[in-house]
Amino acid sequence: MDGVSVVLRPGMVHAIVGENGAGKSTTLRMLAGAERPDSGVMTLDDARYAPPSVIGAAALGVSLVYQEITINRSLTVAENIFIDRLRQFAGSLGFVDRRRMELAAQAILERIGAQISVSADIGSLNLGELKCIEIARALSTNPKILLLDESTAYLDHREVQAVLGVISELKGQGMTVAFVSHHLD
């Protein structure tokens, strides 16, 4: 990649569209701290932005949803949403307060209009619902910017409409969204 410039504005959905191999996903991975650029400068809120990792980017308000489904089918819906932050629900004895975690997960799912229950059997959910859980996972870090990498690539029409509905909800809530696709429609 050479000479890439991206400006993301608050409360807008930005489509990053191009052919396969054009660098769309690489750009998102750099913004999300999954890859480091060789040169150039990134800024966030007028300050230099160089996240050391995906976790570091999330701490700064930038979350990425990858193209591939990353759901662990042996975990519950709520556990998949908070997989890397289960400790925040630990009680005084160190055990996870499942009820508190499930309430927090359900609140995020409701925020995006996903018709998914935290008690749903993860194995019975379709790809669109699994993608919504991944979006909920990204939103559980309270990002300012949500990066979606080909989030509709393997979904059928109904599932695509569900994910696009979530994106519309987030835009309405003032979220900045960057959406990568090679499908112009």
Rank of each mutant, 00 (worst) to 15 (best):
Q161D: 11
N126Q: 02
D121L: 05
D84R: 03
S25K: 02
V163R: 07
R36K: 09
V177P: 12
L60V: 03
S119P: 02
V163K: 10
I116E: 13
I55S: 09
L28W: 09
G128H: 04
G3P: 06
I55H: 14
L75A: 01
T152M: 04
P52V: 14
S124M: 01
T43M: 13
R87S: 08
T26A: 02
G123V: 01
T43R: 15
I83H: 01
T27C: 13
L64S: 07
G23K: 04
L8V: 13
V118S: 03
G165Y: 11
D46Q: 11
T43A: 13
E110S: 15
V62H: 04
I55R: 12
L8G: 01
S140E: 07
I167K: 10
A136L: 10
V77T: 08
L139C: 15
G21D: 07
V163I: 07
I122A: 07
F95Y: 01
G113W: 11
N20H: 02
A57M: 12
A136T: 12
S168W: 05
E169V: 11
T70E: 02
D84C: 05
A47R: 11
I69C: 01
R100Y: 06
R99F: 05
A105H: 09
G21E: 04
C132E: 05
M12G: 08
L60D: 06
N20E: 00
D121V: 03
K144E: 05
L184M: 12
T76D: 10
H157V: 03
G113E: 13
L109W: 04
I122L: 08
A32V: 14
L64P: 09
A59R: 07
R111G: 15
P51H: 10
S168K: 15
A120S: 10
K131M: 09
P10C: 03
G123K: 09
H14C: 05
S124W: 00
S151W: 00
G40N: 06
L164N: 04
R87T: 09
D185L: 07
E134F: 09
F179V: 15
E169C: 13
G23V: 11
R48E: 15
F179R: 12
A32P: 14
G11E: 03
V163D: 05
M30A: 10
R98E: 08
I55M: 06
Q67T: 02
G123P: 01
Y154A: 07
L155K: 03
V7W: 01
D84M: 04
V65Y: 08
A114H: 06
A90D: 01
E79P: 01
L93D: 05
E150Q: 01
R48T: 12
R87I: 02
G128F: 04
Q67H: 00
R100L: 09
M12A: 11
S119A: 15
I133G: 06
Q161Y: 02
V65H: 04
L184F: 14
A136H: 10
Y49I: 12
T70W: 00
E129W: 06
K131P: 01
D45K: 14
K171L: 09
Q161K: 05
M12S: 02
N80Y: 04
G40T: 15
I81G: 01
G91E: 02
L170V: 09
A32Y: 09
L31G: 12
